[in-house]
């Protein structure tokens, strides 16, 4: 518990650091918010109009003044107003987040359901043909960019099976669970493919390590079956690296999957960030990046808790 409290205390510090970095770096990109917003019409603005607009958005102030204003707002739960959507940044993010979260969870489920058994299987068949096939598949999965997989998937589904993944507006789980799952299934498969490949590789090597440990020999000397040796004695000890990898990948997915969202025309966080950057929507960039960083911290915390759940040496510590 003490440990948890310590970790939570570091969160604000990290988030503060992230916010400063984003605040400064977004303003280092050439181009102004006003030009991006008005497009070609920006050329018709007089200097006075431009100044007025800048004053309206508060971007005429020095960067640090802007930052502290933004920070003051943050403490009141106000992330500012998006210039693209003309709505509070927080509302825009929370509207997009359910899709991203659901997509990430589905991809991870697919990846673990495929990758873990495959990795364990390959480890028990070490250096035999079936192990080699799994390793080649995993290598392919990891090295194929997901836009290739996404586009091929859409092509084959529509041309040969007449299935067209639902695009555009997202149907949330609360409205129609089945439709919601159906809509995100193929994007999740696309993302889950490479993810599963990584899980396969890491669980294979972790299992190989563990299977040569002394306590596995002990289990065999007791007369345990190979199933019991693998699932009861080896797997729990091999899960730590799998959890580490899954945590990192899941954290990335929570930041949105720009390319896959683009291919399947899904309104997720990834496209939101991309739009915000290209349109110089400072408040929105700031808000989304902070939100993504916060998610990452939460995921890391969950990973640490999972370590403790998996390994009594972490949970209980030294000798009693």
């Amino acid at each position: 518990m003490n440990y948890l409290a310590q970790r939570l205390l570091t969160f604000p510090l990290i988030l503060l650091g992230v916010s400063v970095l984003v605040f400064v770096s977004i303003r280092m990109i050439p181009g102004s918010q006003i030009t991006a917003m008005l497009g070609t019409e920006a050329g018709m603005l007089t200097a006075a109009q431009r100044e007025a607009l800048a004053a309206y958005f508060g971007i005429d102030q020095p960067v640090w003044t802007q930052y502290f204003r933004w920070l003051a707002g943050l403490f009141q739960g106000d992330l500012g107003v998006s210039t693209i959507y003309a709505r509070p940044v927080l509302n825009v993010i929370l509207e997009r987040f359910p899709l991203t979260l659901q997509l990430a969870l589905m991809s991870m489920t697919i990846a673990l359901c495929i990758g873990l058994p495959l990795g364990v299987f390959a480890a028990t068949r070490n250096e035999r043909p079936s192990d080699l096939i799994v390793r080649i598949l995993a290598m392919l999965g990891q090295s194929t960019p997901n836009f290739v997989i996404g586009i091929l998937l859409i092509y084959f589904l529509s041309v040969f099976f007449g299935i067209v993944p639902a695009m555009g507006t997202f149907t949330p789980l609360t409205v129609d669970p089945l439709a919601s799952f159906g809509q995100l299934f193929w994007p999740a498969v696309t993302l889950g493919f490479a993810f599963a490949a990584s899980v396969t590789r890491i669980s294979r090597s972790a299992m190989l390590d563990v299977l040569s440990d002394d306590y596995i020999r002990t289990a065999r000397s007791k007369g345990a079956s190979s199933m019991s040796v693998i699932w009861r004695h080896a797997l729990p000890n091999a899960l730590i690296p799998v959890v580490t990898l899954s945590g990192v990948e899941f954290g990335y997915l929570l930041g949105g999957a720009v390319i896959v969202e683009q291919i399947f025309a899904l309104p997720g966080l990834g496209r939101l960030v991309l739009d915000a950057i290209t349109q110089r929507d400072y408040a929105l960039v700031q808000g989304t990046v902070l939100f993504i960083a916060f998610n990452f911290l939460i995921v890391n915390l969950l990973v640490d808790l999972a370590y403790a759940a998996l390994d009594p040496r972490i949970r209980i510590g030294g000798r009693k």
Binding site: D213, D214, Y215, S221, R232, H233, N237, P312
Partner: peptide, 25 residues
């Protein structure tokens, strides 16, 4: 062979530190 392991032939090993599974009581 599993029928004789444990039941007929028991075994103890050199390294007590690593010969027990760390995740089970």
């Amino acid at each position: 062979l599993r029928q004789i392991r444990g039941r007929d032939v028991g075994m103890i090993f050199q390294e007590p530190m690593t010969s027990l599974n760390p995740v089970h009581t």
